[in-house]
Design a protein around this nucleic acid. Structure first.
Ligand SMILES: [Mn+2]
Ligand SMILES: [Mn+2]
Ligand SMILES: [Zn+2]
Ligand SMILES: [Zn+2]
Lengths: 156, 156
DNA sequence: ATATAAATGAAAATGATTTTCAATAAGAGT
DNA sequence: ACTCTTATTGAAAATCATTTTCATTTATAT
């Protein structure tokens, strides 16, 4: 329960209200579902995951909602190279949960890691500064992914 | 002219022969085209670029050839987030030309950079080692991209 | 030159995502 | 609670990059 909003309105209600967005059943269902998993879910995964309890929420709405949530910064959208986008909640109990990925090229799963984020941060900061100056490029974001074989897929 | 093969058979003929692949008109055309540009080209870009001189090379073959070249390690395939894959020659005069990208979220163009590769290399090596051990993950590749606004797109 | 399998191109298929549009339902005001 | 306005929704159709199919062509070993 992020930000101590264990009971009462979920913490993100304010964000919606502030943007003039309505709080609807599909939106609640999707955010609730995402907050219950730590996996990287495709739009269809989410559609299926919700469908049992909310059979009337369509896949179209899932796509539309995810787009909105990404735009609002509540959800991260990733491409792990298998042709379908993956989504995960951006916010954790401690605020935005920036992290990088280890992507298995065999089973497609992605592992979150934050271990070296601090070391990386320094390099990134320096790199970003240098690149910004040299190329007059305003960096706002970065993507770092390592590809390889996961534990389970090592044995061919 | 990589590896000093300025005249005579292009340097990559050997690679093809070694794999039992045939040297065909479409394959020559595509490799030749890619070697003449430093841009990041989509399959269709390549198809169009070749079409004037080789009107009988189909888009299907462009896709198939690119897939082959990527698998052979002669070409890099990237996703800059606009829904179409981009390709570029992996080999330069000095061998494999590993580099990272600055991707403009406005115009979609990508700038190659190698400036900080050396500094990054050290961190990456350390990171890869640590991650490999902790997650028992065999890392074979990585992707680093910075997103933001390019020089030209800065002025809104 | 011939044989054989690899490679090709046109057309059709695929599959994730987006668009369209009429119907529904938040939520502000009463 | 009731009404009004308009954001939101769901189903079906459309998009569009990429892949598959399959009959034809062509590279190359002999
Ligand atoms: Mn993640
Ligand atoms: Mn590049
Ligand atoms: Zn795996
Ligand atoms: Zn730009």
């Amino acid at each position: 329960m992020p930000h101590g909003y264990g009971y009462g309105s979920p913490w993100w209600h304010g964000r919606f209200r502030g943007c003039g967005y309505r709080i609807t059943v599909p939106r609640q269902a999707i955010l609730d579902f995402l907050s219950r998993t730590s996996k990287h879910m495709s739009a269809e995964d989410i559609y299926v995951g919700i469908h049992k309890t909310f059979p009337n929420v369509g896949l179209t709405t899932v796509y539309r909602t995810l787009e909105l949530l990404v735009e609002m910064g509540l959800v991260f959208k990733f491409d792990f190279g298998d042709g379908r986008a993956r989504y995960e909640l951006a916010m954790g109990p401690k605020g935005v949960r920036h992290h990088h990925h280890l992507v298995c090229t065999s089973c497609g799963r992605a592992i979150d890691y934050t271990d070296f984020i601090d070391e990386e941060k320094e390099l990134l900061a320096r790199t970003e500064k240098g690149l910004s100056e040299k190329y007059n490029f305003r960096i706002s974001n970065h993507l770092i992914q390592f590809y390889g074989l996961c534990d389970k897929c090592r044995g061919k």
